[in-house]
Design a protein around this nucleic acid. Structure first.
Length: 220
DNA sequence: AAAAACGACAACCGCGTGGAT
DNA sequence: CATCCACGCGGTTGTCGTTTT
């Protein structure tokens, strides 16, 4: 429909941001940058970037409170679980994880989780088993009291109070991957079941896994 | 040691949406 | 109601570091 481009691509700098640019943008936004629209920000902050680029840099990298470390196992579970529920709604998924951005979640999904799921025989798009092994389907275990099987984890949203019983999210997914080679700081829980609760934003999520499963950085 | 391949992530792009006029 | 504008979202690409050959 003949939209106007977001910026003059001829005059605007592109590519990776330098520390100096980061500094300028962060200082400007911290001062009173959010009182004007993003389009005006680069001009006022003395940057040769377009407003869109500034907004992206701020929201994905410079914004206070961002967690730039790798996702924890609990966060990975949450991402997989939320993706099964929401699909590629990265911003919605990111909103459930404090200090994470949609871009971060999206990249993590595309580069790591996707491969893990494929390696486990699960279609990342549908969360259904790949190939003819239909018996692996999560729906096939819809008993009232599901007994978690080898490598299976369950995540439920913890009730906000003792009266409030209904978990907003409650389901399980198969997990028979091996993470042991990936994180040195990980702790192995070689047998039996392991349960915990992790704080994500202002909410608490319970998780449980039986049998061989690695749990890292959970702080529970 | 050098080149090629691969992986991870930052950044860009186009489109949709909602508010203002 | 139509149009403009700013912003946010999701998909894609580019860049750089690491690993493999």
């Amino acid at each position: 429909m003949g939209r106007r481009p977001c910026c003059d691509k001829q005059r605007v700098k592109r590519g990776p941001w330098t520390a100096q640019e980061d500094n300028r943008l962060a200082k400007f936004i911290a001062a009173d940058g959010r009182r004007c629209c993003w389009r005006a920000v680069p001009k006022l902050a003395g940057l040769q970037r377009c407003g869109k680029s500034c907004r992206l840099r701020w929201t994905n990298y410079l914004r206070p409170g961002l967690n730039h470390s790798m996702l924890t196992e609990a966060e990975e579970w949450l991402v997989i679980h939320l993706h099964a529920k929401l699909g590629n709604r990265w911003s919605k998924i990111a909103a459930e994880l404090s200090g994470r951005t949609d871009n971060q979640i999206k990249n993590y999904w595309n580069t790591r989780i996707k491969k893990k799921l494929v390696g486990m025989g699960i279609d990342p798009a549908t969360h259904e088993p790949l190939g003819p092994t239909e018996s692996m389907a999560p729906e096939s275990k819809s008993d009232d009291k599901p007994q978690l099987q080898e490598g299976e984890a369950q995540i439920t949203k913890a009730a906000a109070s003792e009266e409030e019983e209904q978990p907003v999210l409650s389901s399980s997914f198969l997990w028979d991957g091996d993470f042991s080679a990936e994180r040195e700081e990980s702790a192995m829980f070689p047998c039996g079941s392991f349960e915990g609760c992790v704080e994500v934003g202002d909410e608490f999520w319970n998780f449980r896994c039986d049998s061989l499963f690695e749990c890292a950085e959970l702080g529970v």
